[in-house]
């Protein structure tokens, strides 16, 4: 009996990680819903109406919940990735757009474009934990894998703001090219990468000195880069090229452009599978998700989703 209790408790403690569903969740900004793709068959298995203008999307560290920023209704909607149902929602005020989920404390870090601040919410309770003043039109949010640092980009004041966790205050400001959109960290948090939409470039930042170590223009005025994602081995950086209609593949050390992968029109969002073998894109104007095999860096499937797919997250 005691053995069974111990086993039960052990299972319970293990049980914090939900069994992954291997589903890809895509917000469709103009059809007001979330497309759910089965990653094994590359088929849309469900479309969940969530409210007006869904954009940012993220998954709880334990995989139990999917969070969707519903910009037009000033709220975060919470989905159950197994049941594919809305379980609850909470208000976050004023046009929520992009956010990231802290892998350690589970909080949502969200940029509030019209308020020049970042806000921190506990998604379990919907409580506002902290407000952090940043520059104008904050947009991209990235969190270091150890949860200790957050980068928020301010689009109209061209900065990457580095925020310390748990203090929740800005510890450094890095001036980059015009209209910084998105950022990402490497695994040990020593490097960060950010895209500038109007500047048409990507920078690599040393996170100890907060200095830009490399800067790579993408070579075309059509390049309005958005999401940036590192390959699993951290040797390559994938950049969503916007109107280039391509995902650019850069050397993660030198930022030298290695390849351009044609995808759908107006590519914005990127997400990498946990095993690193697949990269998923949202192609806004085409209304598709492109699936890239990262072994060959080629598109192996194109999946029709809703209107103007924007954000993308994988439960795997």
């Amino acid at each position: 009996m005691r053995f069974i209790t111990t086993l039960f408790l052990a299972l319970l403690s293990l049980g914090v990680m939900a069994e992954p569903t291997h589903r890809v969740f895509v917000t469709n900004e103009k059809s007001n819903d979330v497309s759910v793709i089965d990653a094994k068959s590359n088929r849309v298995i469900a479309t969940i109406p969530v409210g007006k203008r869904p954009r940012g999307i993220g998954i709880a560290p334990d995989g139990s919940e999917v969070y969707v920023a519903v910009s037009g209704e000033d709220k975060i909607v919470v989905l159950d990735p197994k049941e594919l149902k809305i379980t609850r929602e909470f208000g976050v005020g004023n046009d929520p757009e992009t956010f990231a989920v802290n892998p350690k404390n589970g909080y949502i870090y969200i940029s509030k474009e019209d308020d020049a601040k970042a806000e921190v919410y506990d998604p379990k309770t919907g409580a506002l934990i902290a407000e952090i003043p940043v520059g104008l039109e904050p947009e991209g949010v990235a969190i270091s894998p150890d949860g200790s640092k957050v980068i928020v980009t301010s689009e109209s004041t061209n900065m990457l703001h580095v925020i310390a966790v748990p203090e929740h205050r800005v510890v450094a400001n890095i001036l980059v090219g015009a209209r910084p959109r998105a950022a990402t960290f490497n695994r040990d948090g020593t490097r960060a990468y950010a895209s500038s939409e109007i500047g048409g470039e990507v920078v690599e930042v040393d996170m100890a000195s907060h200095e830009i170590v490399h800067r790579q223009p993408l070579g075309s005025d059509k390049a309005k880069p958005k999401d940036v994602v590192l390959s699993k081995d951290e040797k390559l950086l994938y950049v969503a090229g916007g109107r280039l209609n391509k995902v650019m593949v850069l050397d993660a050390d030198s930022l030298e452009i290695k390849k351009a992968i044609p995808v759908g029109k107006r590519v914005w969002g990127l997400a990498l599978s946990r095993d690193g073998s697949r990269l998923y894109t949202t192609d806004g104007v085409s209304g598709t998700v492109s699936v890239i095999d990262t072994g060959k860096n080629e598109v192996i499937a194109t999946i029709k989703v809703g209107k103007f797919p924007w954000g993308i997250a994988i439960d795997d």
Partner: peptide, 10 residues
């Protein structure tokens, strides 16, 4: 005033 928002950080 927007320049001063940026200037506060930089």
């Amino acid at each position: 005033s927007e320049a001063n928002v940026q200037g506060r950080f930089l």
